[in-house]
């Protein structure tokens, strides 16, 4: 059973996991990617990014390795672990259920069922 997390923290975790799904990425990249994909709507408070990354690492959902970034800097690359991948699926399912339910309560059709 996944540990219960509050909506906000859970959402950030979900976003990070989803961002890391295609492949390893460093912390700065994760923040940029989320900002970019969400059309600059989701500004990740950078102060909460690193605690979240560390928390996920401690939970064993992601793992970290030192590597070299595009511009030749030493950077810490995070990648999804096996546990993390299944956790992502669980969280996505939960998210879908939740957003559908909220949409129903608010009386709106889900605009796009991704």
């Amino acid at each position: 059973m996944p540990p219960a997390t509050d909506l906000l923290q859970g959402t950030l975790d979900l976003l990070i996991l989803q961002t890391l799904a295609p492949g390893p990425m460093h912390g700065w990249g994760v923040a940029q990617r989320i900002q970019q994909i969400s059309n600059e709507v989701l500004q990740i408070g950078q102060g909460s990014l690193y605690p979240a990354l560390h928390r996920l690492e401690y939970k064993g959902w992601i793992s970290a390795d030192w590597g070299i970034s595009d511009n030749n800097r030493k950077a810490r690359f995070y990648s999804l672990t096996e546990t993390g991948r299944s956790q992502l699926e669980t969280e996505l399912a939960t998210w879908d259920r939740l957003s559908e339910a909220i949409a129903l309560v608010l009386g709106r059709q889900p605009e796009a069922a991704s």
């Binding site: 912390g27 690193y50 970034s69 800097r73 030493k74 810490r76």
Partner: peptide, 24 residues
């Protein structure tokens, strides 16, 4: 549990975090 135990026994060295932040 295993990864948590690993971190519990071997704390992450402080410089590692500092490197990461200065990269950011």
């Amino acid at each position: 549990i295993l990864p948590r135990l690993r971190f519990l026994l071997a704390p992450r060295p402080q410089p590692e975090l500092d490197d990461e932040l200065s990269f950011h």
